[in-house]
Design a protein around this nucleic acid. Sequence first.
DNA 1: CATATGTCCTGAGAGC
DNA 2: TGCTCTCAGGACATAT
Length: 273
Amino acid sequence: MCRGIAGVIGSRIVGVERARCKLKPISLAPRLATFRRKAVGTTIIQIGRAGKRVVLWLDSDDAIVIEPRMAGLVLVVDPPDQQHLRLRIRLRGRGIPELMYWDRRGLGSVRLLSPRQYAAAFSPEKLGPDALQITPDLLQGRLSTSRREIKVALLDQRAIAGIGNLYASEILHRAGVHPQQRCDKLSRPQWTAICEATLDILREAIRHEGSTLSDGTYRNALNKQGGYQNHHRVYGRQSQLCPSCARSHVVRIVQAQRSTFYCPRCQAKGRSS
DNA sequence: CATATGTCCTGAGAGC
DNA sequence: TGCTCTCAGGACATAT
């Protein structure tokens, strides 16, 4: 996502418009008039990320924070359809005419935050260290006293930032850890395995431009589908043969109201990988 | 404090 | 065919 919009760095914002969309408006803060007054005339000097959010740093020191959740897209080309286009940020100077926010379900948001607001919103107690920066010590230190199940804990953005539901299942399968294993029961080798699996899975998913699931929603900034869905080993594959052991079938369970997929043979409970 | 649950939203797909 | 129901999942508010 961030890679695809790197080209907007150096562009000046010359307009901000809500797309005409008959659906419920997405959350925009502050309201449009204020947002526009603060954004127009500024230049995007850097692209960043805060967990799963895209951050556009402005030369005014404010930041535009786009939070797509699962059905939102940040685009620099025409969106998949017009009916879910929510916001246009018009640009000048680097050849990209606009940056668009499209959201099929409208659960995402776009915010313009002052440095103070940004620091408060993404302070260390609200957003943990980024998943791509973790070490076994860090992971173990932050989670090993929790009584929660490891799959549920991996989704807690205050503990570690950036792991979503799909990748949590893939990570634990790669690590050979049962998703219902309690954090406080995991061994040191298991924490090491989870850490390595997290780095491997996320890097590989990024290399393949993410996962476009069967609803076809996810696209990169160029409206191109991801490819990592073809590498999923357990997610969405319930009752299929596990591609690792080829002996057990993938099981689907629900944890904290979200689907979890795992292989009961590769991820046997109590096993210290 | 830690952990668990309900809510937001739209569209796809199942079942009848 | 057309209706109702369920599900998908990020973050946050509220409850335990």
